[in-house]
Write a protein that binds this DNA or RNA. Sequence first.
DNA 1: CATATTTGCAACCAGTTAGTTTCACAAACA
DNA 2: TGTTTGTGAAACTAACTGGTTGCAAATATG
Lengths: 106, 106
Amino acid sequence: MRRDVFQAIADPTRRAIIALIALQAMTPNSIAEHFDTTRQAVSKHLRILTECELVKQEHKGREIYYTLELERMKEIDKWLEQFREIWETRFSQLDTLLQTIQNQQT
Amino acid sequence: MRRDVFQAIADPTRRAIIALIALQAMTPNSIAEHFDTTRQAVSKHLRILTECELVKQEHKGREIYYTLELERMKEIDKWLEQFREIWETRFSQLDTLLQTIQNQQT
DNA sequence: CATATTTGCAACCAGTTAGTTTCACAAACA
DNA sequence: TGTTTGTGAAACTAACTGGTTGCAAATATG
């Protein structure tokens, strides 16, 4: 079962969940109220997010609060880094042709 | 058919293709040489990447060179922005508790 | 204790995905 | 012209996905 951060954020509902709990920890029920799906569907998404450690549980009585693991989000940022370098370089060179970049192997 | 940037980068092969052509424009055949799959499988990935405009074609005789559309990559960066703000804030406050952040509604 | 609440999990289903094999088309070339 | 080369697309398959319904476990409440 392939389960990485990129696969986790592929689903728009999961991205919405991530954005929701980024601001404050929430329980599955309160999260589900924000969507048109059933609580169980949200629960499934939360399980996927938990499996790839994008989300952390905090048990509080019979309620479970989910919080975002920002460290995992940084992984996406880290992956983007290589392209950010390219587009910044290209911007500073006013779109100097790709070929010159690859030949120089910066 | 859901086809956005996030779904496009969910597949590891596609992420590898993106990283490949980020440095230099490549033809489907030369791209396929870097992977264990068939040329047709790569062609399918390229089609998906083209559909969500992450990739651009440049016809040159009977060869087709694929180049990365950096602008689309910035969409991911833009989505990450909201979380970057959070983790930078949290870092500067030396992990001040989430609750204070949400209560202040910064 | 009995009951309601909050949650996770298994079973099932329709739609999608990523891969393969096969084929068709256009460009280069003898 | 006929052949080789580079490519996309259709047909098919196995696996995965996201959703539903139903049920079980654990915590709270009377």
